[in-house]
Computed example of a mutant assay.
Amino acid sequence: MLLRSCLAVPAVLLMLGTAQAATEECPAKSTQMDDIIAELEQAPSCNRAMKIFEACEYGASGDVQFGEVVEKKCEADFLSGLGASQKKAYASELRRCDHKYDNQSGTMYRSFTAFCRAIVAQRLSQKALKASPKAR
């Protein structure tokens, strides 16, 4: 009995932490794809677009379109400043995301791929903004 109680406490704490992390509600005027895309396009930054993506995700193949908007928003911060070898490395990271779930079936894996690609773009955006003299 004591062992079950000891195991239950960490499980409850883990669930509470997860619930707190997902507190933002989708700010789009509806859950329709067009409304979410419009909200993503209006995001003032890459990081904000990612937060909206996380809050509005479908968890299915529809997330591919949301992820594409986030990628473009983030790429605006860094893509023009990349040299040829850096662009090649970026493309390679995106391909890695594209192939990560090749052996998996189900639309949730398309969502995972979209998030993977968006995270890669967000990471490069953050790095570029941190290095930018304007950001200082």
Rank of each mutant, 00 (worst) to 15 (best):
E75K: 09
R48A: 03
L16T: 12
A8P: 03
K51N: 12
A128V: 02
P133T: 06
K73I: 11
K72Q: 09
K127T: 10
K130N: 12
A84Y: 11
L14Q: 08
S111F: 09
I37K: 07
L124T: 10
E39D: 00
L3M: 11
P27R: 01
M1T: 04
A76V: 13
C46W: 09
A84F: 09
S105M: 13
S80W: 10
A8D: 12
L2K: 13
E41N: 09
S80G: 08
A49N: 03
K134C: 12
A43N: 01
A114T: 06
E25W: 02
R96A: 15
Y90S: 00
V64T: 12
A38K: 01
V120P: 00
A121Q: 02
E75C: 01
Q86M: 04
E54W: 11
L79P: 04
F53E: 01
L82W: 08
S105C: 03
R123I: 02
A38Q: 11
C56L: 04
M33N: 07
A114N: 02
S105R: 15
K130F: 12
Q126H: 12
D77S: 15
L129A: 10
R4H: 09
R136L: 15
R96C: 02
P27D: 05
S105G: 11
N103K: 13
A38D: 09
K73E: 03
V9T: 02
S85Q: 02
C6H: 05
E25T: 06
C6I: 14
L2Y: 08
H99T: 14
Y58M: 03
L2V: 04
E39A: 10
V70M: 04
Q20D: 06
S61R: 14
A84I: 12
L2D: 15
P44T: 11
R96L: 14
L124W: 12
E93A: 11
Q32G: 06
L3V: 13
A91K: 05
K100R: 14
L3K: 11
H99I: 04
I119V: 15
R117I: 00
P10L: 00
C56A: 07
P27Q: 07
Q122E: 15
H99D: 06
M15T: 11
G106E: 08
M1P: 13
G83E: 06
Q122D: 07
K88F: 05
D63H: 02
P133D: 08
G106H: 05
E25G: 07
A76T: 10
A76N: 06
S111A: 10
S61Y: 15
G17Q: 07
A43F: 06
G62V: 01
K88D: 04
R95V: 01
A11K: 03
F78M: 03
R117F: 04
F53H: 07
Q32L: 07
V120Q: 07
A11P: 12
A131Q: 11
H99Y: 07
Q126L: 15
L40W: 05
S85H: 00
G59K: 00
A121M: 09
G62L: 04
L82T: 04
E71K: 14
M33D: 15
A55T: 08
L3H: 05
E57N: 15
Q20E: 07
Q122H: 03
E54Q: 05
K88L: 10
D63A: 08
L13C: 00
K127L: 13
V9A: 12
Q126E: 14
K29D: 02
M15P: 10
